[in-house]
Amino acid sequence: MQVNEKKEFEPVIVAFCCNWCSYAGADLSGTNRLNYPTNVKIIRVPCSCRVNPMFILRAFQRGADGVIICGCHPGDCHYTSGNYFARRRMTLLFSMLDFIGIERDRTRVEWVSAAEGAKFAATMNEFTEAVKKLGPNRRLEDLRCRKQS
């Protein structure tokens, strides 16, 4: 029998970034060559308020271990009020997720402006670490969706 090599757990992290601030902030951290883990994959949305709670549930169902939503700082939304909607919706959703056993640390809302490349990288490093500590998401994952390996 082969000895199982103990591989470090590599979480799957989905980041929703608004086009105007956070996606640009993510680009800036790239331009500045600031590293963050490959675990983070970014989905571009026009505004943080475009993030439907369904997307987050879907991510957890499909095996994501953490979901982070990034938008413009309060008051700076390109669409005036989008990030306020996102903030309210996510507050409700996260407390519901917490209630059904998805730890608070697996979900996060962060405000990153287009000029905050360093903050984006730091946030992603920190968030990945936090999710790593929690281990894989087992609560909502639908094993039928899991990749055959």
Binding site: K41, I43, V45, R50, F55, R58, R62, G63, A64, C145
Partner: peptide
């Protein structure tokens, strides 16, 4: 729904990333 960023499009991206 939103043209260019529809529910199904973003869901498909989520699926592709999580797979």
């Amino acid at each position: 729904d939103l043209n260019g960023f529809s529910n199904s499009q973003i869901m498909a991206e989520v699926d592709a990333i999580c797979k």
